[in-house]
Design a protein around this nucleic acid. Structure first.
Length: 286
DNA sequence: ACGGCTACCTGCCCGC
DNA sequence: TGCGGGCAGGTAGCCG
């Protein structure tokens, strides 16, 4: 399940292996993979052919490759199961190969978008004046972005009439946080997922944000070590998931702080994992 | 306007 | 063994 750290690992891999290369041809093998492209698969392939890819960018869980010399980008989202792979041209097609990009050079590799559940996809979009694909203008800066505005984030939390985890998953407030890192950051901050955002004083929101950054940087440190090979990793199985999670997936296992069995609660068609002792609901305001 | 809910999709895993 | 159902969940879009 790729969240920000996994997407950043992919971005680095793309920078290493495809930036600067010119597209020869594009093959769309599944229409759903380009459903966000306004013109459909044939148009996507036609417009990308012959273009040279610039340095890949990322905001939250979105990444995009600007096309050199034009205000146009290839936008990608991995969804739940998407992978961007740089593979030898002669290696067998993956079972869920959705898009293939061939290059006009003799490096012998091609870019492949592979996606089992087809929640992800690729598309072409005009850039806004600040170089962002127009369709993601509503996505907030992510917590690893140097220009992330912490003061504005705190004020937005105070203004919202919602709960903490919803706010963490709201990509228009802060981007890049998914279910896993939301639970991890809340556990680290000892905050209940249903605590009203408006009750959070500035030091507590700053602390929560610090934990979000810490858990993402820890995952990045682990996942970021494997991209320096031909295989542009990318399915999010960085290894971090198995070893370093304190909350996510740990139902009935002892809390690593206090030993109390962790709980799982159905929440918004998914699950929230938390320690019932460390992460108590806030006292009800009178 | 805004919060909140659900459809979209496939494979795995469990229970019967 | 096979099948059905639950579960995984990011995002857009819709509903109230």
């Amino acid at each position: 399940m790729p969240e920000l750290p996994e997407v950043e690992v992919v971005r680095r891999g793309l920078e290493r292996w495809v930036a600067g290369r010119t597209v020869e041809s594009v093959e769309v093998l599944h229409p759903r993979a380009v459903r966000r492209h306004p013109g459909g698969g044939a148009d996507f392939a036609a417009r990308l052919g012959g273009r040279t890819l610039g340095v890949p960018q990322r905001r939250g869980k979105y990444l995009w490759l600007p096309l050199e010399g034009r205000d146009l980008s290839v936008l990608g989202h991995l969804g739940m199961s998407g992978q961007l792979l740089v593979q030898p041209q002669d290696s067998p097609d993956e079972k869920h190969l959705r898009v293939r990009v061939r290059f006009d050079d003799d490096l012998g590799t091609e870019l492949r978008f592979v996606d089992q559940r087809t929640f992800g996809g690729l598309s072409l979009h005009e850039n806004t004046p600040d170089g962002l694909p127009d369709v993601i203008a509503h996505i907030a800066r992510d917590p690893l972005d140097p220009l992330f505005d912490e003061g504005a984030y705190h004020l937005a939390l105070r203004a919202r009439r919602t709960t903490l985890k919803r706010a963490l998953l709201d990509q228009s407030l802060i981007s890049g946080v998914g279910n896993i890192y939301a639970d991890e950051a809340l556990w680290r901050a000892r905050l209940h997922y249903e605590r009203p955002t408006a009750t959070l004083a500035r030091p507590r929101s700053a602390e929560l944000l610090g934990h979000v950054r810490d858990v993402m940087n820890a995952a990045l440190a682990v996942g970021g070590t494997s991209f320096d090979s031909l295989y542009v990793n990318v399915n999010g199985e960085s290894g971090y998931f198995d070893r370093s999670l304190d909350a996510y997936g740990r139902e009935d296992e002892p809390c690593r702080r206090c030993g109390t069995p962790m709980r799982r609660r159905p929440w918004m068609n998914r699950s929230s994992y938390f320690c019932p002792r460390c992460q108590r609901p806030a006292r009800v305001a009178s």
